[in-house]
Amino acid sequence: MFEGYTLAELGSIFAMQGFAGLILFSVFVLMALGLAIIFGQMGVINMAHGEFMILGAYITYFTSNFFLNYLPALFSVYFFVAMILAFVGAGALGMLVEWGMIRHLYRRPLDTLLATWGLSLMLQQFYRSVFGAREVGVELPQWLIGSLPVTDVIEVPINGLFVMALTLLITVAVAVLMYRSRWGKQVRAVMQNRVMAGAVGIDTEKVDRYTFGIGCGIAGVAGSAFTMVGSTGPTSGQLYIVDTFLVVVFGGAQSLLGTIASAFVISQAQSTMEFFLSGSMAKVLTLLAVVGILMLRPQGLFVLKVRR
């Protein structure tokens, strides 16, 4: 499949596809982070995760319209406001869902899967009825448009760079939150041994609710970042949900590092192959490889050693 390309061309192709892969990687990581917290830490399968992400994307879209119409002077910074709103909006909905639904189902993980799938169907239809079936895209501020030339054949788009920087920032924030803060310690304690954590005075119900809320909030931020690189429709979230679950499972469900590594491997493999094969075959081969590896190594790439 490499015939007809010179070495320099191949280098540029790999660089460009690698960069496209990095954008895909950023979206995967942002979605998978929230999912890794919810699935890895709580053991809850949230099939509506993609819809939480789309909620963030819609919130960003409306914020951008609001700024465009009422505060044009501040339009260049609307994105940061939108991101916070997306986090709060998706997080609040997440906590509501946890309170109304998930907390009754902690002992039945397979049933959570079905219930959240139902939720995702309802949210999709809600988006379709309220926001319309058409895909919407946001207006990017001036400073995010354009691309930086690296060499004379390689160019990197600025919005892609921005999304990557954002991903890095959020990943670091989540890592600090999980491994350096008091709250993170409580979350990990509850997940390792719920009864014991309760016995030492941790309010486990509250921890559950905030964990779920923060996981969904991060999905909202992911949606916010997603608007920078793609357009949003009512069913966009569903396109990513299976990939994201594979990312989380492939990485080893409880390991944040594993999630990031597997997101990197999957996105790079997919986008590099996409150039040489058709898009669908690239995806089939990537997913097949992941499923194959998971069959050989069901615990995922990185395993957290916990005595149960």
């Binding site: 009754h104 189902l105 079905l114 139902g118 939720l119 169907l121 309802m122 239809q125």
Partner: peptide, 20 residues
């Protein structure tokens, strides 16, 4: 037609939560 996904979603949630 626009209500079907709502009904379907509610069915999923209702069956799981209330009538396992």
């Amino acid at each position: 037609p626009e209500l079907w996904l709502f009904a379907m979603g509610a069915l999923f949630i209702g069956v799981v939560m209330a009538f396992p």
